[in-house]
Amino acid sequence: MPDYPSTLHYLPIEVSGQLFAIPMLEVAAIRQLGRGDAPVVSMGQEARQPAIPIVDLQSLFFGVSLSDIEEPAYVIVISIPAFACAVLVDGVRPARLAEPADQLAMPLTLTNERYPFRGVLRTPEGLVLIIDSRLLIEELRRIKPDLIVEKAHGSR
């Protein structure tokens, strides 16, 4: 039962040497973060809060916190209806397309709220986990409500 009925446009991101995919429709912005930059992202008028903290995805997925930001690091602003969050990743690769046949369902054992993934992609580099933005945001909200932002009504 593929999660996506049609071609998926996704952004490959790199976290601790592993590739993950974020559906492009859920990527609101990509920013490069340098040493000394404030670990927050300004959300402007599209959100009720002016800024949100950047969540280190490596810390969330691998249980290790980045005390120093290794350059280059990127911030991805993920946006779904009503909510958004900003995550820090090690690398970003050019966006790609995945055919429906290459979008596979997660094995049942791993369809757990602790694994914020909605499926698996077959790619030339091997299997790549597709991040489930909704589950990710729910998890961040559970950890600390301040880590996500509630969007202003009508904004994307």
Binding site: G17, L110, Y115, V120, L127, L129
Partner: peptide, 14 residues
């Protein structure tokens, strides 16, 4: 055999 990456390698028994 395909790897699910280092993230899920931490899941015991898989």
């Amino acid at each position: 055999v395909k790897s699910l990456g280092t993230h899920l390698r931490r899941v015991h028994g898989i």
